[in-house]
Simulated assay, not measured.
Amino acid sequence: MNVTQEKSLAGLTGSAAKDSRIRRSKLASPLITLAHGGGGKAMRELIDDVFIDAFSNPTLNTLEDQARIPLAELARLGDRLAMTTDSYVIDPIFFPGGDIGKLAVCGTVNDLAVGGATPLYLTCAVIIEEGMQVETLRRIVASMAETARAAGVSIVTGDTKIVGRGSCDKIFINTAGVGVIRQNHQLGANRARPGDRILVNGYLGDHGAAVLNARGDMHLSSPIQSDCAALHGLISVLLAAAPGTRFIRDATRGGIASVLNEIAEASACGIEIAEAATPLRQEVKGFCEILGLDPLYLANEGKLVAVVPEAEAAAALQALRAHPLGREAADIGAVLADGHAGRVHMQTVFGGKRIVDMLIGEQLPRIC
C-alpha cells in the first residue's frame, strides 16, 4: 500500500475516532469456558482483553454490530468494490512459518489482491472450543494483528462463539475482506489467450509439506517452512510492470494443478508447463517422493499463478524477481491454441508428457 492509500485508509477510519470507547475489562480465567460465549460479563472480558486489545482501531472500538465505512472515501481508491470470505480449519494450528491467525489474514488479503483489489478491511469471526488455553488464543490473535498491520489492513468487526469440548478442533476462524479494485484492471481465468505465458513467484508446495511435516505422523526431520505471506504488494508490482495481465490466482488448496485446470476450462484453451522450469525445493521433492505425493497439488499460501501476455512476460518476471516475495519467480509454461482446449499437461524432465488433471479428493486434510 502506498502513502496515498495509507492516508486514504486513515481518513476512512478517522471519522469514527470521536465515538471510540475502548473498554477495559480483564479476563480472569486461564481457560476458555462456555460462559465466554454467553453474552454476559465473561464474554465482554474475552472480547475486550483479547480481541479489542490486539485489533484496536477507531472503527472497531465503537463496538457496534457493524463497521461503518464512508462510501465517498472508498470511491476515491477505485471503481469497484471487492468482497471475499473464507474459513480456516488447519491442523496443527501452529506450524513452521505461520499459524492459523496469520493464515486467515494472508489468505483473505490474497483473495482480494488477485482480483486487482487494494485490500482495506477484514472481519474476524472465531469458533473456539471450550477448554482452550487463553494464552494460546492470545498468540493467535496477536499474530492476526501483527499480520494485518504489516499488510496495511484493519480488522473492523467480528464475532465470537464458544462450543463444547469436541464440537470443533481448538479453533476455527472465518475472515471476510473488503477492498477496492483499481480502475482499468480486468482479471479473469476466461481472459487467457494462446501464446500467453504462465508465471509463478517462487518455490511451490512449501505450505502443504510444512503442515504435513508439523503433524509429526511421519517422524521426518525437515527444515521446510510454510510460505504464508500477504501478496498484495507483489501483485501491485506485477500489474505495474505488466498492465495487460490476464489472470492472477493464489494457488492454495489443490496447488497450481487446480489453478491451471481452472484457467484451461474457463478459457477453452490448453496449457503446457515444463517440469524443469517449475520451481521446487529439493526438500519438498524428497518429501513428496517418500510419501508418494505430487507437489503440483500441494497447497501454497504465498504463491500465485499469473497469466501474462507474451510481450509483457519478461518485464513481469523481472519485476517479480525484484520483490522479496518473488525472488525465485519463474516462467513455467504457456497457454496453447484451441486444439488443446481444457487440457493441462507437463513436459517431463525425461522428454515425455503427462496429463495434469484436476485433483480428486484431498492429498492432505485441513491444510488451510
Rank of each mutant, 00 (worst) to 15 (best):
P223K: 10
P223F: 13
I224P: 00
I224N: 00
S226Y: 06
S226Q: 07
S226L: 04
D227Y: 04
D227N: 14
D227Q: 08
D227K: 05
D227E: 11
C228E: 03
A229M: 08
A230Y: 01
A230V: 12
A230F: 09
A230R: 03
H232F: 12
H232S: 13
H232G: 02
G233F: 04
G233Y: 04
G233I: 05
L234W: 04
L234I: 05
L234A: 02
L234E: 00
I235H: 02
I235M: 03
I235L: 03
S236L: 11
S236A: 14
S236Y: 08
S236V: 10
V237H: 08
V237I: 13
V237G: 05
L238I: 07
L238T: 01
L238R: 03
L239N: 08
L239Q: 09
L239G: 06
L239K: 06
A240D: 14
A240P: 00
A240Q: 13
A240F: 11
A241K: 08
A241N: 09
A241L: 09
A242R: 01
A242F: 06
A242P: 05
A242T: 07
A242W: 01
P243S: 12
P243W: 12
P243V: 12
P243T: 10
P243I: 10
G244C: 12
G244W: 09
G244P: 05
G244H: 09
G244S: 12
T245V: 14
T245S: 15
R246Q: 13
R246H: 13
R246W: 05
F247I: 12
F247G: 11
I248W: 03
I248C: 04
I248A: 03
I248T: 02
I248S: 02
R249V: 01
R249C: 06
R249P: 01
D250G: 10
D250M: 14
D250L: 09
A251G: 10
T252W: 02
T252K: 04
T252A: 10
T252M: 06
T252E: 05
R253V: 13
R253P: 00
R253H: 14
R253E: 15
G254N: 07
G254V: 06
G255K: 00
G255A: 09
G255E: 01
I256W: 03
A257M: 11
A257K: 01
S258L: 14
S258D: 11
